[in-house]
Each structure stands twice: as C-alpha cells, then as structure tokens.
Design a binder for these strands. Sequence first.
DNA 1: CCGTTGGCGATACGATCGTATCGTAAACAT
DNA 2: ATGTTTACGATACGATCGTATCGCCAACGG
Lengths: 195, 195
Amino acid sequence: MPRLVDHEQRRQSIAEAVRRIAADRGLEAVSLGQVAAEAGISKGLVQHYFPAKDDMLRYATTTLRERVHHHLPGGESPSLRDTVIALLPLDDDARAEALVANAFLSRALKDDTIAARFRAGYTQLHELLAATIAGEQQQGTLASELSPRHEADLLLALAAGLGDTLLLGHRDTEEVIALLDSHLARLAAPGQTGR
Amino acid sequence: MPRLVDHEQRRQSIAEAVRRIAADRGLEAVSLGQVAAEAGISKGLVQHYFPAKDDMLRYATTTLRERVHHHLPGGESPSLRDTVIALLPLDDDARAEALVANAFLSRALKDDTIAARFRAGYTQLHELLAATIAGEQQQGTLASELSPRHEADLLLALAAGLGDTLLLGHRDTEEVIALLDSHLARLAAPGQTGR
DNA sequence: CCGTTGGCGATACGATCGTATCGTAAACAT
DNA sequence: ATGTTTACGATACGATCGTATCGCCAACGG
C-alpha cells in the first residue's frame, strides 16, 4: 500500500472549492479546471476523487445545511428570534451558503440525490423551529394556541424570502430584522411586552 | 433596403427561448447553440441580434416581472389575497418564471443592469401590495393600524419563501395557501370573520 | 435594371469543457 | 529487495463553447 490519504478530507476540500466558485461566480462557472485551480490541485486529482462531475456536485451539497447549526447561538435553548436570525445570510459565510443553495435549486429539481438533501435540510430546520416555538409556548412567551409546525413553516418561508431580499439588497439588515420582529410580535402571548 | 423585420419581436422570441432553457435546464445550459435550436433559428442569427451572449442574457430579463400583472385577477380592485396568490408559482408559466428569476439571481449580484431589473420588479410589486393593503384598510377588512409598506415587505418575503417551498415540493399548493391565509387572518380588522 | 443594404446561414477559430488514458513516485507486504 | 498498490500529474481526446468572418439572397432606391 502506498501512502494513505484521508479521502473524506480531500473530498471536502474539493467540495469547498466548488461551493466557493458557485457562491461568487455561479454554478455555470464550476468546471473541473476551475475547481482544481481553486483547490490548488491538479485537474487529474479532482477526477481521482470524483469520477464524474455530477458526483462532485452532489457531494458538494452534503454539508450544505450543517452550517446552520454552526450559526446558532451557543446557549442551551436559544430564543426563537435568535434561531430565525441565524437562518438569515448576515455574514459572508451564511451569505455564501445561501448563494450556493440558490445555485443548486434548479439542480434539485432534476437530481433526486440533491432534492433529498434539500428536503432533509428543510425538515431538520422545520423540526428545530417547531421545537423552539413549543418551548417558548411552555415558557409562556408565545401564544399557546399557535400550531408550532404551522408557524415553523411560515417562519421558514419568511426567513427564506427575507434572505433573498437581503442578498439582492432590496432591504438592509436593520430593516429585515425589524420586519422579522414585527412578525414575531404577532406570535407573542397576550400580555407580553414585545421582544 | 431589404425586407424589413421587427427586431423587437425577434429579440423577444430569442429571449423566450433563453427563458425556456433557463427554466428547465438552468442558466448553465443556456448557450448560443442551445438557444438557436430552441428558437428554431440559426446560430448566426442569434449573433445578429445579440452581438455578445451577455447582451442576450440581459435582454432576457427585461420582461421578467411583466407577467405578474398577467396573473392578476381581472377585477377592478383584486383582493389582497388574490394578489398575493398571483405571486405564487402555481401554474407552469408562473413556475417557469420563478425558476428563471432564481437562475438569474446570482447574475444580478454581478450585473448592474440585471440588478436594476430585479430592483424595479420588487419596487413595483411592493407598491402594488401596499396600495392593495391600503385599499382594504379603507374598506375596513384590514386592521387600520398596520403599515401598508411594512406589511407589503412581509408579504413579498413570505410569498417568495412559500414559492421556493412550492418549487422544491416541501409543501403542496393547499398547504401553502393555508399558510398564506393564516398569515392574512392575523392582518384582518377586529370583528372580521376570517378570509 | 442594377447596385446597395440588411436579414440570414455557414463555417472557422481558439479556448475550454468533461472524460479517458497514460506514466511516475511513494509506501507497504512479502 | 522486489513487487503491488495507490496517490497524483500530464496529456490527449472529441465535443461544445463564444466569437469572428465570410457569402448569399431578397428587397428597395436610383
């Protein structure tokens, strides 16, 4: 046996190159040559780890939604507000991830593997939000008659739309957060004084 | 002079071919050859009307948001609900348009011309929604303390997010409309019995 | 009637695409 | 030491990319 190499690590570094290119030049700019250059390796090596380009693209979507957890506030049970804010593309990393997800959306409609990844990501976020909502209901800060799953869907859609608004520069960060807060205020339990 | 041809019409038919390809195979599949084949004309003719590919892509975004009006219900003053529903990708046309807009999003971040188009589209829809909201407030069906511009931003974001949810198949049409209705119900004037 | 002009097709160009096929160097088993 | 196996680089392949350059054909002005 020759020298051993961590395949997974290699693949991840290639996948990161793919995501970097997709984020700032679009999926159309993701070619084997560009990826090799971005990853600082030879074109042949990329082929060694991904026999076909489609394999590479599919793999690049594996860790797409893991970063959401990374953006979550560290506390034990983060507030609903902080959790939703963590979904917004507010820093460069989150912005890049949003752009990558956007670039892969059209592929998700044709590629079952990528579609499954998107669905899993949505389900995961949905469960997280629903649990957070239920927690705040028990805590008495959110109105108890709300359906956590229903409100989670609304919040995910709102966060996605506000994310696009941010990416396109239609509204700035302050405005978007104010919009989000006004929505959350309507979910508050009666007698709650905002925030 | 030789036979005269309607340049605008030619350009539009080419632009439609671009949008068709972008909608179902992504922007990466939009090449001069593919566009020519889709439009049923020669590759040289495409070049005749668009000296560079970027010109063609830019032009393809001109009429992107015009179709929204086409989806609006015919009545004099359509309800807020019907107006927002008209923003959702419920039929094939609207779905194709949403996919095209999605495909061009990454380009809008680099191309000022396309970015201006997106911004104009957002502004136009925002004004439409705000006016509709103000109208329903006067009519007494929406709570009078709401800010029409504020709620318009929220509804646009919600519609965009719900649109993505629909495109990706995370929720079906009925569920999405139910989500939308539950949001709208919270905006209703007190004493209003739903819808 | 003929020359000019614009619509349009055909083709050629170099670059880059994705993939295939090599050669070589390094590391372990025997 | 030798042979086998794997990491990796290099190169070649045909296809397609975007662009440039032709030539023909139709139509109108003179």
